[in-house]
């Protein structure tokens, strides 16, 4: 028997996620990569619920629940305490997209600029799911949410948080997707090897909020990557590397699987396709450019 990801399970049974939750899978993989000697700092998000109500927790590592905007600053504090105690424990800040792109951005920017020794993972389900599918700055253009109802769909593009983190010149930034757990785990292990702030953003689809059949979580996640909408890449000390080069699906194929895009018409979809192609091209150019400056 050959398993492609570590066998040890640090996420116990009985969690409170919805059926087919991408965020739940993301945590399962992250803990496989990080191991037992880890403390998780979790701000308000679905994961504050999924973990279980006090005094229960489904995770077999210590969890520090904290206020919505404070994932990075609380993790900085825990990391400083570990340093004083002379411990090598990994400090994981685990936040949703709302807690990262929106309300937690200043705390994260502060930690990154100071170079606090934490691994920050944002599980990106592209809206405020825990409170009932409100739009966040991670919600993509064209999506329905309860605050961007049908014809008034979101008209602003998704904020490029990854590039904001790259601009902080932190040692390691990466994107990942739950359909590629081997890649996600490899990136987390790599992040662990760096001193300073590391940022990983993992796409974690939400069947409840995106309006699709829970059985399709992995199929849809794969489609997000294969269409180039959610490219997998890493930036290690300024050097870009695309993890998966092939781009062989269209935006249309991806969005037609989801109820949150069901109101979109041909022209809007064409426009979205053009933007994805442009962003993809830009990413390839970045890889080439920074690759040349390597030596």
């Amino acid at each position: 028997m050959k398993l492609t990801i570590p066998g040890e399970e640090l996420m116990g049974h009985g969690n409170l996620s919805c059926q087919g939750c991408g965020g739940s899978l993301a945590m399962r993989y992250a803990l496989k990569a990080l191991g037992r000697d880890t403390i998780a700092v979790i701000p308000a998000c679905c994961w504050s619920i999924i973990d279980g109500p006090f005094p229960y927790s489904c995770l077999k590592i210590p969890v520090f629940h904290t206020a919505f905007e404070t994932a990075a600053s609380a993790a900085s504090g825990v990391s400083a305490a570990m340093k004083i105690k002379g411990k090598k424990t990994t400090v994981l800040a685990w936040a949703g997209d709302g807690g990262t792109f929106d309300i937690g951005i200043q705390a994260l920017s502060g930690a990154a600029e100071r170079g606090d020794n934490i691994i920050y993972i944002c599980y990106d389900n592209e809206a405020y799911m825990n409170t009932g599918i409100q739009r966040s700055s991670a919600t993509p253009y064209g999506a329905w949410t309860t605050t961007t109802p049908a014809k008034k769909f979101k008209s602003a593009p998704k904020k490029n948080m990854v590039e904001i983190m790259v601009a902080h010149k932190i040692p390691y930034t990466a994107t990942a997707c739950i359909a590629y757990p081997e890649d996600f785990i490899k990136k987390i292990k790599k992040a662990k090897g760096f001193q300073g702030t590391k940022y990983i953003q993992v796409l974690a689809p939400c069947p409840t909020g995106w309006r699709y059949d829970p059985a399709k979580t992995i199929e849809l996640s794969k489609m997000a990557v294969e269409s180039g909408i959610y490219p997998l890449y890493e930036v290690e000390n300024g050097i870009y590397k695309i993890s998966r080069k092939a781009k062989n699906k269209t935006v249309k194929e991806y969005i037609k699987m989801q109820g949150r895009f069901s109101h979109l018409t041909g022209e809007v979809i064409d426009e979205m396709q053009k933007n994805v192609d442009k962003e993809w091209e830009l990413l390839i150019r970045k890889e080439e450019f920074y690759g040349h400056t390597k030596e």
Binding site: G12, L16, G52, Y56, C58, K60
Partner: peptide, 16 residues
């Protein structure tokens, strides 16, 4: 500080 005393295995989600 507040700490967790038990896992969630009592929560038999199979009933969902």
């Amino acid at each position: 500080c507040a700490m967790s005393l038990a896992d969630m295995s009592h929560n038999k989600t199979g009933s969902w």
